[in-house]
Amino acid sequence: MWYVYFLRLHNGDVCVGSSNDLRRRFESHRSGHVTSTKAHLPVVLKAYIGVETEANARQLERYFKTGSGKAFASKRFFANSSN
């Protein structure tokens, strides 16, 4: 199983990534071992999607990094979220 995940950064931005080990990857972000997020700690796991293959996860990750993907995620995953 592969996961596409959404992290809320301390500065309010959302980081999108993918991994086949969500717990390990989140811990890497949380402990400051990921260059793209270490300056914006703490991070909060807000949502994730499970998919069967790495190819599907990478494709979804790319989509959620586009303008329309960000809009979709914001409306569907973060609409009622204040954090």
Rank of each mutant, 00 (worst) to 15 (best):
M1K: 01
M1I: 06
M1D: 02
W2E: 14
V4P: 02
Y5V: 02
Y5G: 00
F6D: 08
F6G: 02
L7E: 01
R8L: 01
R8V: 06
L9A: 05
H10W: 03
H10K: 10
N11R: 03
D13K: 08
D13N: 10
V14W: 01
C15P: 00
V16F: 04
G17E: 14
S18V: 15
S18L: 15
S19K: 12
S19I: 15
N20D: 15
D21Y: 10
D21P: 02
R23Q: 05
R24Y: 10
R24K: 12
R25V: 13
R25S: 12
R25L: 14
F26C: 09
F26E: 06
F26G: 01
S28D: 10
S28A: 09
H29K: 13
H29W: 14
R30E: 08
S31H: 12
G32L: 04
G32K: 10
H33Y: 11
H33E: 06
S36L: 08
T37W: 02
K38Q: 11
A39L: 15
H40I: 02
L41M: 10
L41E: 07
L41V: 10
L41H: 04
V43N: 01
V43G: 01
V43W: 05
V44W: 15
V44A: 13
V44G: 06
L45Q: 08
L45G: 08
L45F: 08
L45I: 10
K46G: 02
K46F: 04
K46V: 05
A47E: 09
A47W: 13
A47L: 04
Y48D: 00
Y48L: 02
I49N: 01
I49M: 12
G50K: 14
V51L: 09
E52N: 07
E52F: 12
E52R: 12
T53V: 07
T53K: 11
T53W: 09
E54R: 15
E54N: 13
A55H: 07
A55V: 02
A55C: 00
A55W: 04
N56H: 05
N56L: 05
A57C: 07
A57V: 10
A57F: 06
A57W: 07
R58D: 00
R58V: 06
R58I: 05
Q59R: 13
Q59I: 11
L60K: 02
L60N: 00
L60D: 01
L60P: 00
E61H: 13
R62A: 14
R62S: 10
R62L: 13
R62E: 12
Y63L: 12
F64K: 09
F64R: 03
K65D: 04
T66M: 05
G67Q: 11
S68A: 14
G69E: 10
G69H: 12
G69T: 11
G69V: 13
G69A: 08
K70A: 08
K70L: 06
A71V: 06
A71C: 03
F72W: 15
F72Q: 10
A73L: 07
A73H: 09
K75L: 07
K75N: 06
R76Y: 09
F78V: 05
F78S: 00
A79P: 00
A79E: 00
N80P: 03
N80K: 11
N80G: 14
S81K: 01
S82C: 09
S82L: 11
N83C: 03
N83H: 05
N83P: 00
N83S: 04
